[in-house]
Nucleic acid binder design. Structure first.
Length: 423
RNA sequence: GGAGAGGUGGCAGAGCGGUUGAAUGCGGCGGUCUUGAAAACCGCUUUACCCGAAAGGGUAACGGGGGUUCGAAUCCCUCCCUCUCCGCCA
């Protein structure tokens, strides 16, 4: 949620930035201003009445103490009108606040100046590309066929247990999964991130604070009996650790990392491009989260990208970095880089990481501030996948296949305990 | 699941209808003293919003929500949470 005051004081800038999303920013902002004006007027009036009522109550108290019963009764009579009018004004204020809040919830974050204009993924900017695309042997297979051949994971078994899109990993496939998680966690820990194991379900408050509710309600699994949501990413519980907190400036930066399974309902879309591990309802991901001072956040975004690049290099995967255009960015983000790896058998790029700066969009909902020189300021939050497993596995299997088996990158071998996946 | 106790400021802990946003202690910040430090002493020390150029003024908040009352941290209802005992259990 954008900050109301920032939005009022920097109207021109915010409108220009929002326009990159191809939305009617002018109308959205005009409405916000009007709703806020109405709210302020109501509160000013309410406060004045309440002030009067409080004064009367104090007078009555004093008169009672002094034993002046008749005068107290007279004063009491005058409170009746005030009580009904303040009650009405309170209702009016409540609905004005709700209307404003609901409206603000519909406004996405304002893209950073560097974000390119564009409507579709085709208009994203390729920032850089690195690593050689491997030349595969004849008869190279896509990863779902490799999985079957080597017994690494099964989607059919997942259907039996749960439904479509829930892979069951086994044998070397399961070991590879665990190896990657450990490898990513260790790398993040080396880089100074503190490891967190959070709950895999969150309440509605948490889901709201990071921006999943109300706009992405349909994408989360919802346990209605308890009002809980299965997390779509570790970002949700980990960032919410700092909900309703005011931290000392000296405590920043806060660097957290967590591994969790991620659950996504992902309505729609079937066919070849969602086969295998390309798009599943449950996958594993290691997420890095940062809480930063505003003046540092964009440098930190680049630092996080470098961290992810380091992982991809260590895994010897060809990858590219994309700067998302306004039309392709997530609702809560001010600027997002996507990292994609090339999956050689499918001959396509797979998104394996999304690294975003949310500026104060999340912290405003979280009420996450830091104290600097006696002033409380909203912190900037950032997060990024480092990395998302399922698609990394897909690329790893496809790119490293040989007639003799599937080669495990050197960096990973200490974690897997084997150098080659074989039958 | 059954029975009981309780949720107050950064922490501990009073208050149980009338200037109580809240005693007191600890912690923190500033000052006096000191060669320096400690001790002692003095002052300050929650958050959000509204009006205002500012100075300043006002409103709200004692787990959440609702009610009673001229007035509630204090009384009532309800929900949530924590603790103790019993039961069950990875």
């Amino acid at each position: 949620m954008l900050e109301l005051n920032f939005l009022r004081e920097n109207r021109e800038e915010v409108e220009q930035r929002l326009n990159k999303r191809n939305i009617d920013a002018k109308t959205l902002l005009d409405t916000a201003r009007d709703l806020d004006d109405a709210r302020r007027a109501t509160q000013t009036e309410l406060d004045a009445r309440l002030n009067e009522l409080n004064g009367l109550s104090r007078t009555i108290g004093d008169l009672m103490k002094a034993g002046k019963k008749e005068e107290a009764e007279a004063a009491r009579a005058r409170t009746t009108e005030l009580k009904t009018s303040t009650a009405a004004l309170k209702d009016k204020l409540d609905s004005a606040e709700k209307a404003l809040h609901d409206h603000l919830c519909t406004i996405p974050n304002a893209p950073n100046a560097k974000v390119p204009v564009g409507k579709t993924p085709e208009e994203n900017t390729v920032v850089m590309e690195e690593g050689a695309v491997p030349v595969l042997h004849d008869g190279a297979k896509p990863h779902w066929e490799l999985a079957e051949h080597y017994g690494l994971f099964s989607l059919d078994l997942g259907v039996k247990l749960t439904g479509a899109g829930f892979p069951v990993y086994s044998g070397q496939g399961a070991k590879l999964q665990r190896a990657l998680i450990s490898f990513f966690l260790d790398k993040a820990t080396e880089a100074g991130y503190r490891e967190i194991i959070p709950p895999h379900m969150v309440n509605a408050e948490s889901a709201f604070a990071t921006g999943q509710l109300p706009d992405k309600e349909g994408q989360m699994y919802h346990a209605t009996a308890d009002g809980l949501y299965l997390i779509p990413t570790a970002e949700v519980p980990i960032t919410n650790l700092y909900r309703d907190e005011i931290v000392e400036a000296a405590q920043l930066p806060i660097k957290l990392v967590g591994y969790t399974p991620c659950f996504r309902r992902e309505a729609g879309s079937y066919g070849a491009h969602v086969r295998g591990l390309n798009r599943v309802h449950q996958f594993d991901k290691v997420e890095i989260v940062r809480i930063e001072k505003p003046e540092n956040s964009y440098a930190v975004l680049e630092e996080m990208v470098e961290h992810v690049k380091g992982l991809l290099r260590a895994l010897e995967l060809p990858y590219r970095q994309l700067l998302l255009c306004g039309g392709d960015m997530g609702f809560a983000s001010a600027m997002t880089y996507d990292m994609e790896v090339y999956s050689a058998a499918q001959k396509r790029w797979l998104e394996v990481s999304s690294i975003s700066n949310f500026e104060t969009f999340q912290s405003n909902r979280l009420k996450l501030k830091f104290k600097e020189e006696k002033k409380n300021r909203l912190a900037h939050t950032l997060n990024g996948s480092a990395l998302a497993l399922a698609r990394i596995v897909a690329a790893l299997l496809e790119n490293n296949q040989t007639p003799e088996g599937i080669r495990i990158p050197k960096a990973l071998q200490p974690y897997t305990g084997f150098a080659m996946i074989t039958r």
